[in-house]
Write a protein that binds this DNA or RNA. Sequence first.
DNA 1: ACATTGACTAATT
DNA 2: TAATTAGCCAATG
Length: 110
Amino acid sequence: MDEEYAEAVLDLVEQVPAGRAMTYGTVAEVVADGFVLAGGRARGGPRQVGAVLARMGARVPWWRVVNAAGHPHDPARALAHYAAEGTPLTSDGQRVALRRAIWFPDDPED
DNA sequence: ACATTGACTAATT
DNA sequence: TAATTAGCCAATG
């Protein structure tokens, strides 16, 4: 596991505003693009993002990263955060309403 | 070098 | 709507 890559992922996750969220796939793409611009080599798909969070996710708001269906890795804990942050959820209250919560680094409504 | 495994995704049933 | 299938990329043994 490349430390530089891990840092990039964690930094990005830390930038996600409360009440918003990003998908693993999107995080992977944004980080990958950043590395390309930096003339870097390290790549990584969505699964690598998950691998990084599995190791060092404890120090970042990991609940703001969900899969394409809007499901967080640890629903029990994530739900409590969503309630506290006012994150938009779907009718079943079990998954993040990505249509409304999805966030990008260049989002004007940071 | 090969097989297995994951905090994934998209398309197909 | 839910389950299955196939593709995916890197880490690990």
